[in-house]
Nucleic acid binder design. Structure first.
Lengths: 146, 146
DNA sequence: ACTATAATGTTAGGGTGCTAACATTTTTTG
DNA sequence: CAAAAAATGTTAGCACCCTAACATTATAGT
């Protein structure tokens, strides 16, 4: 029997999810929001206080430069604004534009729809195991970092 | 309790794995082989007959254009050669260079090392469940395609 | 045989993700 | 307080991955 490896399996799954996410977003008429945009909007919308870029990096496990680029694109597309914090001149506060607030509802629906497709015929038990394993892998990678 | 979603979880995990893979490859003195290169070499090395690009697309779940680009890079780096098949003028047979064959052993070691780190403290049972869930997700995504 | 369709591969264009190097501001430390 | 260190964000450069459009060769349908 073939031995399966975590690395390439996750990579492949990520590729498949990426394709499907884009198709799904297109079907929902949200062509511009193919990447992390929808998730970023949802996160900011459900946050109490002000949101800074560093919060988003942490949340989505990307590097500073990556989030900087993504937010630049979202800003260009009129989804967010960036303003320097008065308390800390380094930090930039991210705010949703009215346009982003308006489409948040549709984005959420689209996300729910795709998640329902993904998890079809997968039991609570299995999902629990799945996430638990993911957590262990993450932990193993962090420990690896010395 | 926070509801966890498959999409972003896989995305995050993929990001973390990508970082660690690159660091791992660098530690092993394989700086050029950060992406799929090591896996492609391993796959070709363990194949009986001739290998064509389409086999690699299938294997690694990437599109034609992606594999085409990756192989172009590998060719430029002296890891593979591409020659048109005599039986089918469209298909190009991929062959490892002596250099690639020589480093295959080290690549395998590096892969095994990282996989061992990743799966630490994860039981056979859990891994089985993990892969089974991945298979179900893949299946759900395929069915979705009509 | 001849046309239509399918299969294989490439290129162009764009988003995502990384590291590394940089700038700016804040905090820590001596 | 002044210098060193840390935190926040940007930019450049590169790899990966996608879709769309293209070229070429093979196969099917008539």
């Amino acid at each position: 029997m073939e031995i399966r490896r975590i690395g390439p399996e996750i990579r492949r799954l990520n590729n498949l999810l990426k394709r499907e996410t884009e198709k799904s977003a297109a079907r929902a008429g949200l062509d511009g929001l193919t990447g992390l945009h929808g998730w970023v909007i949802g996160f900011i919308a459900r946050q109490e206080g002000p949101v800074f870029q560093r919060d988003l990096e942490e949340r989505f496990s990307v590097r500073r430069s990556t989030m900087s680029n993504i937010l630049s694109l979202m800003e260009k597309n009129g989804l967010i604004t960036r303003a320097p914090s008065k308390k800390d001149g380094r930090a930039k506060q991210i705010t949703l534009t009215p346009r982003a607030v308006a489409i948040d509802r549709f984005v959420r629906q689209d996300i729910e729809r795709l998640e329902a497709v993904i998890t079809k015929n997968i039991s609570e038990e299995e999902l629990k195991c799945f996430f638990s394993t993911i957590d262990k892998i993450k932990n193993n990678l962090e420990v690896q970092d010395d």
